[in-house]
Each structure stands twice: as structure tokens, then as C-alpha cells.
Amino acid sequence: MEPTGAADHRTDREADGEANGEARGKAGDEQAARWNGPAGNAWVEAQDVVDALFAPLEELLVEAVPAGHGGRVLDVGCGTGGTTVALARRLGAEGRCVGVDISGPMVEAARARAAREGAGASFVRADAQDHVFEPAAFDAVVSRFGVMFFEDPVRAFTNLRRAAKEGARLRFIVWRDIAENPFMTTAERAAAPLLPDLPERRPDTPGQFALSDADRVRRLLEESGWAGIDIRPVDPTCVLPEAELVPYFSRFGPVGIALRETDEPTRARVVDTVRAAFDPFVHGTEVRFTAACWQIGASASGG
């Protein structure tokens, strides 16, 4: 769906018709295959748990938008739409938030959520790196963990800059260094002796820690035409019910992917081993960890 004007009256399925042209052109792309397959379905199945887990980070994005002032916001890598809907509520009746994501399953879940909640939010299935947004259409561009997967970050952030009005704000949350986020790698470190083919984490490729280097992020944004760049650490505490811990690490990340193809005896050993490795994070009925992230802001000015 186009973000402004008469395009607001077009259906989501019409928008998908355009976006699917991009998707077909990227049929072999690893990210498209990942998020339109088991990984995307896992996020849909666990959306309530994930929303609650990362609620403190959602709040950092929502508070960046003036309450009740209307306007238009673009939510990049919107997933199942929790942040998009929260932003739409923040904007008020005169505002609108548009979520964009490459994952068909997650976009469908996001549309269903917005319909249930009567939110002023719409969604388009597309790759934000290449999608042709209406120029200068948005008052703000935000993302919670949705911009680390671009194949070409400069091209992507340049495209988002074109979609932003003069003076619009950019705010996004990404993970800091892998060493500062031990919770996120506990499963694979514990499972490695039992699953020797787990892929190696490479921070220079699209993925969870692709934007962990603050100096690199600053350069990327400057090259993409953003100004007034502000990068600051945030360290919220995230909480997960202990009962959801095994389903969580069995669905997500390299271990979750590997377990889909593992025989049952090996799976049972992996689950027992990994669960024990998480003991330092378990406090009674809760799992708690620090999410070491960057909160990054910039302005669409001087263009």
C-alpha cells in the first residue's frame, strides 16, 4: 500500500501484487527465503511472547513520536505489527502508520492484528531496501530490529531517506556487540558440541549483529544522506516467562533452525543441554536479561 494520498484507498492485496514482483525477483535471496518460511512462521506463532519480551524497546520507539499530533510514520521490518499498531495509537485518529516487511506470513499477521484493534495502520509486503515509496511521504521512519538484514545498507537507508519528508526523524534500535549480549548466543554456544554444523556468526553480513559497530553505522547513515546522527547505548531489562524459555530457543536463532532437521534423540539432548546453560538468567518463574542495544537517531535535513 502506498503511504499517502489516494493510494490509501487501495487494498493490501493490490500492494502485495506490486511487492510480489520484487519478491519473485529475489526468489533465491537468502533473507526472503528465510522470512517467508519457517523463521517467519515462528515469529507469527510466538508473536505474543516476543511482543512482551521486547516491550521496553518498543516503548523507546513509540515515545519518539508526538502523541495525538497525527502525521505519517513508516515502520521498517514491522514483523507482526506490534510496534506499528502502538505507533498508530500514539499518532491519534488523524495519523497513520505504515509497516513494511519482506515476510508474507508476518505481514498477514500484522494486518489481522490491526483489524482486531481497529488501528490506523496498514502494511505492505516488500523489501524496504528497494521498494518504491512515495517520495517525502513520512514524518518519521522507525524500526525495532528491522534494519540489520539489508544486503546493501547504504542503498536501503538512501531509499528510506527519499521516503522521508524534509526534517523527518529516523529512529531505530539495533543490537550492540555480540559479546555484550550473552543471552542471545547462549543456545548456540551450549549446543555446538552436539550440533557441529551450526553456522558461524559473522557481524559483517546481514543478521542480528550487522549494525553493532557504531562508527560503521554513522558512516552508513552519512553516506545515505541522513544528518544529525545520534547514537547512544540503551540497556533495558527484558523478561520472559520461564515456561516459555524452551519454546523460545527451540524456535529462534541458529539452534531453532537446526532443531527442525534433527532426530528426536539428538533434539532431546540439545534441549536439556541448552536449558541448563540458561540457568544464570532464570530467576524463579522469570527469565531476565539485559538487551545491550544502540538507539540511533538522525534527521532528514539538508537534502
Rank of each mutant, 00 (worst) to 15 (best):
Val141Lys: 01
Val142Phe: 04
Val142Ala: 05
Val147Leu: 06
Phe150Ile: 09
Glu151Leu: 02
Asp152His: 01
Asp152Asn: 05
Pro153Phe: 00
Thr158Pro: 03
Asn159Asp: 06
Lys165Val: 03
Ala168Met: 02
Leu170Val: 03
Leu170Ala: 04
Arg176Tyr: 12
Arg176Met: 13
Asp177Tyr: 15
Ala179Trp: 04
Glu180Pro: 06
Glu180Trp: 11
Pro182Cys: 07
Met184Leu: 13
Thr185Pro: 00
Ala190Glu: 10
Ala190Ser: 10
Ala192Tyr: 09
Pro193Asp: 08
Pro193Phe: 06
Pro196Leu: 03
Glu200Tyr: 03
Arg202His: 08
Pro203Asn: 14
Asp204Gly: 08
Gly207Met: 15
Gly207Glu: 14
Asp215Arg: 13
Val217Arg: 08
Val217Pro: 04
Arg219Met: 10
Leu220Arg: 08
Leu220Thr: 11
Glu222Phe: 10
Glu223Gly: 03
Trp226Phe: 08
Ala227Val: 07
Ala227Phe: 08
Gly228Val: 02
Ile231Gly: 13
Ile231Glu: 14
Pro233Val: 09
Pro233Thr: 11
Leu240Val: 12
Pro241Tyr: 15
Glu242Met: 14
Leu245Gln: 13
Val246Ala: 15
Pro247Lys: 08
Phe249Tyr: 12
Ser250Trp: 07
Phe252Val: 02
Val255Arg: 03
Gly256Leu: 11
Glu264Asn: 13
Arg267Leu: 12
Arg267Ala: 14
Arg269Met: 07
